[in-house]
Amino acid sequence: MSETVSLTYGAEEGDFYIQHIKRTEPFERTNHYHGTYEIYYLLSGQRNYFIKDRSYMIAPGDLVFINKHDVHKTSDVGQPGHERIVINFSDSFIGTDHPFYHPSLFGVFQQPAHVLSLNLQDQIFVQTIMNKLTKELNEKQNGFETYIKLLLVELLLFSSRYAERYESVPFEHASPLHKKISEIVQHINSHYQEPMTLSGISEMFYMSPYYMSRAFKEITGFTFIEYVNMTRIREAQKLLRESNRKIIDIADSVGFENIAHFGRMFKKLTKLTPHEYRKHQQ
């Protein structure tokens, strides 16, 4: 069997979700962004993790924090196979009106670097929290939902303090090519509403279209056009949630010249039409 699931609880887009899985074959993550916070803990193997506009090499004992709506994708590095725990939770799970809420709990999601590389002592501490979460969710004793929140608060508080202690360590790109692709991603993030082609962007960044296309896919996990479309649809989702603008105006404002193409891409990425998405969010 190519994967062994030790634990799954909740739904990924729900208030609280956790999954512990071990894979022995190549795997690429397919969900690109969501409205929940994510904590990713790698137990074994190596992963390339693209988050927002940077690519990270993840090793066992690394904790990864991904803010709501940030684009992210993992892919294999070297030998296939890895083991990891993923936790997703919503604002309403430990929201501002919750007795456990404190702004510092979410500090780790605001850090420029998304990865905490823990020393052995801190890995043991985090593993203890993960073991307690697993035990609670397997046994489901009286009050287990409350204890899950306590354990999540403990993990977030520890991680935010850890990030504050080590925030002076500057992020370094794995190579000049990683830095260049990061700059291209930042350009797409800032100019998604403008006409954008592979040939035009590759010329702007002094690369051949073929070389840029291969490097972009290898480093981010997305093709160039996949990433452009996904960025535009993500911004369209935000406008559908937060404004009453007409759908045709939103399509135009995020860079789609053709409303039919916008509708097809929106449904492909969200499984809903723009109209259904807006209704669902109200």
Results as ranks from 00 to 15, higher is better:
V228R: 05
H114L: 12
A11T: 00
F222I: 02
Y56M: 13
Y33I: 00
E164R: 09
V86D: 08
K132G: 00
N142S: 15
L152G: 01
D97M: 05
Y147K: 10
L105V: 10
E13F: 15
S159C: 13
F262T: 01
E136F: 08
D76K: 02
I259S: 10
V153W: 03
M57Q: 03
G61E: 04
R234N: 09
L118I: 07
K149L: 12
Q282D: 08
Q79F: 04
V228M: 11
K149D: 00
S75K: 09
E276N: 04
H187F: 12
I87G: 02
H82L: 10
T146F: 12
N244H: 14
S202W: 05
R84E: 04
F222S: 03
T220R: 14
E139W: 01
I184T: 13
L63W: 11
Y17I: 07
S44P: 08
R165E: 07
T220E: 11
E139R: 04
S160C: 01
R29D: 14
S44R: 15
Q19V: 06
T273Y: 06
K140R: 14
N229R: 12
R161Y: 09
R84G: 10
I201D: 05
I66C: 06
S175T: 11
R161K: 11
D122G: 11
L269G: 09
E83Q: 12
G221N: 01
K217G: 05
D91A: 02
L137F: 03
A163Q: 06
Q193S: 11
N258R: 00
V71P: 07
K279Y: 01
L156D: 12
Q46A: 08
A215N: 12
T197G: 13
L7C: 11
R84I: 01
S90V: 04
E3G: 02
I250G: 01
K246Y: 05
I124G: 08
L157E: 15
G255N: 14
R47D: 03
S55K: 04
L155A: 00
A215P: 14
T74H: 11
T36K: 13
L269A: 13
I21A: 02
F93Q: 10
S253N: 01
Y166L: 04
Y56S: 04
F216D: 11
G10Y: 05
Q127A: 09
R245F: 00
A163L: 10
E203P: 15
L152P: 00
S253A: 05
I51F: 08
T134N: 06
Y147S: 13
Q19A: 15
G78A: 11
E13I: 06
G107Y: 08
M265Q: 15
E145L: 00
G14T: 09
K22R: 10
Q46L: 15
A113Y: 02
I248E: 01
D249P: 05
